[in-house]
């Protein structure tokens, strides 16, 4: 009976322990600090947003969000480990704690906010869904696509928008869904489908990966709003703030004219109170965010301001040559607008 008693006691202890551990599960911020790097969920290869360059380094606009978080937190933008995820895998990976932040051209929607337990930390790219077709088809508008076979990536908002668009236009289509965007692109090339639909930025990125990019054209219609941004798990306010403000710092830096070239100089010599607060020369805004005082300096120095990363990855300085458009600053006719640091 003694044995039985101890077993029972051990069992009871295990159960109570288990419950108490679950009640005070460590925050993401503590866990990230303890392991010394940010685990970042990115896409499985999308030029301009997240893909491996010739040296095997991940680069792109989405990758830069994670690098900014690492720069703010550790003062070192390289302290990031990447997990490439398909569209189907991404939410489960974030929900289960496999990644700390999901920065994978993911559309911010109400159900993802409310039912999936995600928090979107902002919008790092304002996008919209478009269509990529072979020029040979002679199609000039999405309204001529009745009866077409359409390639889509499974488990995306694109799938839903496509159905809505064709239903609204009283048109028919055949959906051909694949898990990976590369598979969809190959299917378009092989002729399994007539049209590839996705966010416009992705279409431009996929197009340059095709064997003959010039044979394909992106149709003018944009059929949806796709605000893409990084997401974190709910119930972790500190971590959410850090990711959110890392992104805002990049946008604010661009607005104030702070660049990777002049940031160190401005941090010491600027007289503009906005710049001084952002760069930690005034106030203790970093400490409030549970970050080092020079968090924004490190972000801009190592990753650049929003305009710099945009140009480098998807804009004029890249192969994609996407115009700033909606992604320009609010005072230049775009939508990028960050709350002030104060």
């Amino acid at each position: 009976m003694k044995f039985a008693k101890t077993t029972l006691a051990a069992l009871a202890a295990a159960v109570t322990l288990g419950v108490s551990v679950q009640a005070q599960a460590g925050t993401t911020l503590d866990a990230v600090k303890a392991k010394g790097f940010v685990q970042c969920g990115i896409s499985d290869g999308l030029p301009g947003f997240s893909y491996a360059d010739s040296k095997g380094q991940y680069i792109g606009l989405d990758v830069d969000v994670c690098r900014a978080v690492a720069a703010a937190l550790f003062g070192d933008a390289t302290k990031v480990k990447y997990t490439p995820l398909t569209a189907k895998e991404r939410f489960t990976a974030l929900q289960s704690g496999e990644v700390d932040v999901l920065s994978r051209n993911t559309t911010w929607t109400s159900s993802r906010d409310a039912a999936m337990g995600l928090n979107f930390a902002g919008v790092n790219y304002y996008d919209g869904q478009g269509f990529l077709v072979n020029k040979k088809l002679g199609v000039t508008s999405a309204k001529e696509l009745d009866g077409a076979a359409v390639c889509i990536q499974a488990g995306t908002t694109t799938e839903l928008n496509l159905a809505d668009y064709f239903r609204a236009g009283n048109m028919k289509y055949t959906p051909i869904t694949y898990d990976k965007s590369d598979e969809s692109a190959k299917a378009l090339e092989a002729g399994r489908c007539d049209v590839l639909t996705s966010d416009q930025s992705q279409l431009y990125a996929q197009r340059i990966k095709l064997a003959k990019p010039d044979d394909y054209v992106v149709l003018p219609e944009v059929i949806s709003k796709e605000p893409l941004g990084p997401a974190v798990r709910q119930g972790d306010a500190d971590w959410f703030n850090i990711v959110k403000w890392s992104l805002f710092a990049m946008v604010n830096a661009e607005e104030m004219g702070v660049t990777s070239a002049n940031v160190e100089d401005l941090a010491k010599n600027s007289t503009n109170p906005d710049v001084r607060r952002l760069l930690g020369a005034e106030g203790e805004f970093g400490k409030d965010l549970k970050l080092p005082q020079d968090w924004a300096v490190q972000i801009v120095k190592q990753v650049g301001n929003y305009g710099e990363t945009f140009d480098r990855n998807v804009g004029a300085g890249s192969d994609l040559k996407i115009a700033r458009g909606l992604n320009d600053l609010w005072n230049k006719g775009g939508l990028q607008y960050a709350p002030p640091v104060r």
Binding site: M116, G117, G155
Partner: peptide, 18 residues
Amino acid sequence: GYPDLVSLFAGTVLNQTG
């Protein structure tokens, strides 16, 4: 991309509903 139970239900539906 054959729409079987795993691809359709444990894939797309899982992803749309979380």
